[in-house]
């Protein structure tokens, strides 16, 4: 192995081999996936995400939620994802075709979020949880995101979306003040509520 060109070819071949084998061939296999319907003529899934959910996703990316949350429920019988309500079925490649940035995640410090919009449907809950996870989930190690909220004087009428803290909450705002979500928090919650695995695909039926 003294010959540079020969050594070089070997080195080149090894990486090219795995790139072709893993990436190029998956691209060939998956690259043509389109939304599909269970029965001819029905709505095709997955649906395109709304603009707000897309913007909220940018916040999810910027805030690094992926480092504690996955978005890939596994099939029934492999782990307890199904029993925990993280998805009525496993997620499959077609579920992700609209995503410009795929956020599968590899860490479950917190629960899988692929189906969180079906599990936790209240925006108020999400806002309280993001503001201070200890309110909704005492003992949680999720970090608070209170900088997504602003404190301001209560106007003539209290804002409709001001956070409603449980009685006795130690860090509640002073009398005459309220805490409201910023646009970023609203978009983020829109995104969370949009995360639903509530449709079937030809290759993935519920309870699979």
């Amino acid at each position: 192995m003294k010959n540079l060109p020969l050594l070089f070819c070997g080195i080149f071949f090894c990486l090219a081999f795995s790139w072709t084998g893993l990436i190029l061939s998956s691209q060939l296999q998956l690259g043509s996936l389109r939304p599909a319907a269970i029965e001819e003529g029905e709505l095709t899934y997955p649906r395109r995400p709304t603009g707000q959910a897309e913007q909220g996703k940018q916040e999810y990316i910027r805030l690094g939620c992926i480092y504690c949350h996955s978005q890939q429920p596994r099939m029934k019988g492999f782990g307890a994802d199904f029993e925990r309500g993280w998805g009525d079925r496993q997620s499959v490649p077609r579920d992700y075709i609209w995503q410009k940035r795929v956020l599968l995640g590899t860490m479950r410090t917190g629960p899988d979020l692929m189906n969180v919009g079906q599990r936790l449907t209240s925006a108020d809950w999400h806002h309280l949880h993001l503001y201070d996870p200890q309110i909704t989930s005492p003992g949680s190690i999720m970090t608070p995101f209170s900088y997504l909220y602003e404190t301001r004087r209560v106007g003539e009428v209290p804002s409709a979306d001001a956070l409603r803290f449980p009685p006795g909450y130690a860090m509640a705002p002073a009398e005459g003040y309220e805490i409201v979500p910023t646009d970023r928090a609203r978009l983020l919650v829109d995104y969370l509520l949009s995360l639903k695995l509530d449709y079937e695909l030809p290759e993935a039926k519920f309870s699979q």
């Binding site: 990436i23 691209q27 996936l33 075709i97 995503q99 795929v102």
Partner: peptide, 10 residues
């Protein structure tokens, strides 16, 4: 960006 989960593979 490659389509969907091909990104994850990459």
């Amino acid at each position: 960006p490659a389509l969907g989960t091909v990104q994850a593979i990459t």
